[in-house]
C-alpha cells in the first residue's frame, strides 16, 4: 500500500477571530496534482502554508509522507519537511545566478552540478544558468522557481498562485508547461489558485474551498459537471438555477421534465450549465431571445421563458440566427443536477 504524501486531519487555523481553516480534512495521493480552488480569502493559501510549516495549525494534524509534522505537540520546522515551494512572486534570490539559486536549494548535495543541469534542461533553460533573475522574462523566472523547488526531489511541491504575475497568453502556455514538468518529475503537487479555468485544465483532482472548509474534492469533470452543492456549481463557471419539483430520477421545471444525474426528492433548484442548453429557432418555441453577448468563438444567449424565468445558454459563435426577439426552443443535453432548497 502506498503512503499518501499529504494528509490533513481536522486542521484548524485562525488569525484573531477569523477562522482561516476550519476542520479541514484533506488527502493527496502519490503523484497527484491537486489544485486547491476557491475565492480569495477562502483559506487555500493558509492551507498551503500549514503544509509547508510556515504557519502552525491551532489544532489537528498534518502528515507528510507518513510522518507527523504538525499536531499532537509535534511541530517540525519547514526546513525539515522535504517540500518544495513556488511562491506567488517566485522569491528568486536577486543576487544569485539561476544556477546558484538552484544550488542554494540543493544545499550542498552530491552531484549538485549535474542536478542543476538536469533541472535547467527540464524547464528548458539550459543555456541560461549564469543569468541573473532580472535578466529573465516573467515566464522564465517562473520556470526557474519551479526548477528550484523540484531540484532536491521533495516529497511534495507546493505552488502558491504561481501564474498571477503573468499575462493571459503566457499563463496558458505556462499551464501546459508546468503540467508537463510536474508529470515528468513524477512529483506530488498542491497548486493554489482562484482561477477555475486554470484549476480545471491543470488538475488531476480539484479541491474547492470556501470559508476555511472543503466543499468538494474530485476530478475536474466531476466538480464541474456534478457539483455536490449550489456553491460549488456557482463558483465553477456559469450556471442557471430553476425552481423545480423532483421525484427521484426526474425533476419538473420551467424546461419541462428533465432527467437527474443524482436522485433527489422534493422542492429543488435545478442547475443547468449554459453549454448544456441547446437552442433552436422555432416560431412555436417557449422562449424569446432578450439579449445576445457575442464573444467570438461562442456567444451567451439570454432567453426569457414563458413562465417569466430567464435562462442563459451558450451557443457557438458561428451562427448569427439568435437575434433579439427571435422565438427559440430550449432543450437540455444530458442530465441535470438539482439541490434541495
Amino acid at each position: 500500500m502506498t503512503i499518501n504524501p499529504i494528509v490533513l486531519k481536522k486542521v484548524y487555523k485562525s488569525f484573531g477571530s477569523h477562522a482561516a481553516v476550519n476542520a479541514l480534512d484533506l488527502t493527496v495521493c502519490d503523484g497527484m496534482l491537486l489544485v486547491l480552488l476557491g475565492p480569495s480569502g477562502c483559506g487555500k493559501t493558509t492551507t498551503l502554508r500549514l503544509i509547508a510549516g510556515l504557519d502552525a495549525p491551532d489544532r489537528g494534524e498534518v502528515w507528510i509522507d507518513g510522518e507527523l509534522v504538525a499536531g499532537k505537540g509535534v511541530l517540525i520546522p519547514p526546513e525539515k519537511r522535504r517540500i518544495g515551494m513556488v511562491f506567488q512572486d517566485y522569491a528568486l534570490f536577486p543576487h544569485m545566478t539561476i544556477a546558484a539559486n538552484i544550488a542554494f536549494a540543493l544545499n550542498g548535495a552530491k552531484n549538485a552540478k549535474q542536478r542543476i543541469g538536469e533541472m535547467l534542461d527540464l524547464v528548458g533553460l539550459g543555456g541560461k544558468a549564469e543569468r541573473y533573475p532580472h535578466q529573465l522574462s516573467g515566464g522564465e523566472q517562473q520556470r526557474v522557481a519551479l526548477a528550484r523547488a523540484l531540484a532536491p526531489r521533495p516529497a511534495v511541491v507546493l505552488l502558491d498562485e504561481p501564474f498571477s504575475n503573468l499575462d493571459a497568453a503566457l499563463r496558458k502556455e505556462m499551464r501546459q508547461e508546468i503540467k508537463r514538468i510536474l508529470r515528468e518529475a513524477q512529483t506530488t503537487a498542491v497548486f493554489v489558485t482562484h482561477d477555475q479555468e486554470e484549476a480545471l485544465s491543470l488538475a488531476d483532482c480539484v479541491a474547492v474551498m470556501k470559508q476555511g472548509q472543503l466543499l468538494q474534492v474530485g476530478s475536474p469533470q466531476t466538480v464541474y459537471l456534478r457539483p455536490e452543492n449550489r456553491e460549488v456549481a456557482d463558483f465553477l463557471g456559469e450556471a442557471n438555477f430553476l425552481p423545480g419539483v423532483a421525484d427521484g430520477k426526474c425533476v419538473l421545471c420551467a424546461l419541462g421534465q428533465l432527467q437527474l444525474a443524482t436522485p433527489i426528492q422534493g422542492d429543488v433548484e435545478v442547475m443547468l450549465r449554459p453549454e448544456a442548453l441547446r437552442l433552436e429557432v422555432d416560431s412555436r418555441g417557449d422562449g424569446v431571445v432578450s439579449e445576445v453577448k457575442f464573444f467570438g468563438h461562442d456567444q451567451i444567449v439570454t432567453v426569457c421563458l414563458e413562465s417569466g424565468l430567464v435562462v442563459q445558454a451558450r451557443a457557438w459563435g458561428i451562427t448569427s440566427e439568435f437575434e433579439v426577439g427571435a422565438r427559440v426552443h430550449v432543450t437540455l443535453c444530458g442530465k441535470a443536477m438539482a439541490y434541495v432548497k
Binding site: 526546513e79 519537511r81 518544495g84 506567488q88 517566485y90 522569491a91 534570490f93 543576487h95 528550484r148 532536491p152
Partner: peptide
C-alpha cells in the same frame, strides 16, 4: 526583503540562523 524570500529558504531546508547568514545578509550586502 519580502517574506517569501525568507520562507523560500526555510522550505529549502535552511534554519532561521542559516537562512540569515546564507541568504538575508548576502542579499543585503
Amino acid at each position: 526583503q519580502a517574506a517569501s524570500t525568507f520562507e523560500a529558504a526555510r522550505v529549502m531546508g535552511y534554519s532561521r540562523v542559516r537562512a540569515l547568514f546564507k541568504l538575508i545578509l548576502p542579499l543585503a550586502r
